[in-house]
């Protein structure tokens, strides 16, 4: 299985190599973009080498997703809980971003292992912020309650202008993804991948993973949702998550996997296209080899023919060997 890791490799690399080792006393001012239009901007100046500034832009929210000061439900609390005194949130964020944080490098723990843990967490800012509402709701599920003041259907942004939906109950949370792809081949591949994905889970009777369904039309849970939010071209995937899937350490993993489900499918689709091409290239190569062999056989034959001993064959073969 190809799974994306939660920490951004790039953020982690910058945090670990450049700033802490201090080997290169160079300023940093760098922009990157991840899948689903999550953007980062990192600034570090030798004039103030104790601080690094990290800004994050989130996917453009669709109308049905509710944000609080531009951030998903519970994001601020999640940042504070994850980073403590190391990180300070700047208000307002930098122009063009939804969140700007000052990372105080002098407040990092001295113990190498602890320091690495927190740097890895900073590099996982995407999960901390975008996953905050999901984590909140699933934490309640772990204690078999429903979070107060939430609707019975919650829309959470996960891609630009797209949300997925949660129906929280005390004993289970139902999660529905309308699946959309741009490219026509991708739509076909994704649809069949999803059906197989669901089937594989059913037949393998994987009791430890959430049960999962695919349907071409919106499931009942989405009744009343606006039509725009429901125009999916690769069907709908539904997961039902029970308390046992989110107890203890499983929670973080489940949050990240649910948050990146679309990216996971998209990555698989791209990879299978890649593998198909590899196969096709190999096939073409072996065909060319076969043709070459056939050609040289034909040529050998032709030589013999011109040698004069196979007169009767000559008529038939000369025509073929012209290829």
């Amino acid at each position: 299985m190809i799974l994306l890791q939660s920490p951004s490799r790039f953020l982690l690399q910058i945090l670990q190599d450049r700033v802490l080792s201090g080997e290169k006393g160079m300023d940093i001012d760098c922009h990157t973009v991840e899948f689903d239009d999550v953007r980062y901007h990192i600034q570090f100046s030798m004039r103030n080498p104790k601080v690094m500034v990290l800004s994050v832009a989130l996917p453009l929210p669709p109308p049905e997703a509710i944000l609080y000061d531009g951030l998903p439900l519970g994001a601020i609390e999640a940042i504070k809980a994850a980073y403590g005194p190391v990180v300070q949130i700047l208000d307002p964020p930098k122009d063009g971003f939804d969140l700007t944080m000052k990372i105080n490098l002098t407040k990092l723990p001295l113990d190498e292992e602890q320091r690495n843990t927190i740097l890895t967490q900073i590099a996982s800012i995407r999960e901390v912020v975008l996953g905050a509402p999901l984590k909140l709701l699933l934490k309640h599920l772990a204690s078999k309650t429903v979070a107060p003041n939430v609707n019975n259907l919650v829309a959470l942004v996960h891609r630009p202008n797209e949300s997925f939906f949660l129906a929280p109950q005390a004993d289970k949370v139902t999660i529905v993804y309308p699946m959309r792809f741009q490219d026509s081949i991708d739509i076909v591949l994704a649809t069949s991948f999803l059906q197989e994905f669901v089937e594989a889970r059913r037949t393998a009777a994987l009791n430890n993973v959430p049960s999962c369904m695919w349907s071409p039309v919106p499931p009942l849970e989405l009744k009343g949702v606006s039509a725009d939010a429901l125009n999916a071209n690769a069907g709908f995937v539904t997961f039902v998550v029970y308390p046992r899937h989110v107890e203890g350490k499983k929670l973080d993993r489940t949050v990240w996997n649910l948050l990146t489900f679309h990216a996971y499918v998209s990555y698989h689709v791209k990879c299978s296209e890649g593998f198909m091409h590899t196969r096709m290239r190999r096939r073409v190569e072996s065909l060319i080899q076969a043709l070459d062999r056939a050609k040289s056989d034909a040529e050998k034959l032709k030589k013999l023919v011109h040698g004069g001993s196979f007169k009767r064959l000559s008529l038939k073969n000369e025509g073929d060997s012209r290829f």
Binding site: I2, L4, F10, V33, F35, Q182, K270, T278, R281
Partner: peptide
């Protein structure tokens, strides 16, 4: 070309972590 394609695949999805359709 087979390993080149795989190399690109990893560069795009696992290193840069971007969706190639977006850029």
């Amino acid at each position: 070309w087979d390993t080149m394609e795989r190399f690109w695949q990893q560069c795009i999805f696992n290193y840069l972590r971007c969706d190639p359709e977006d850029h």
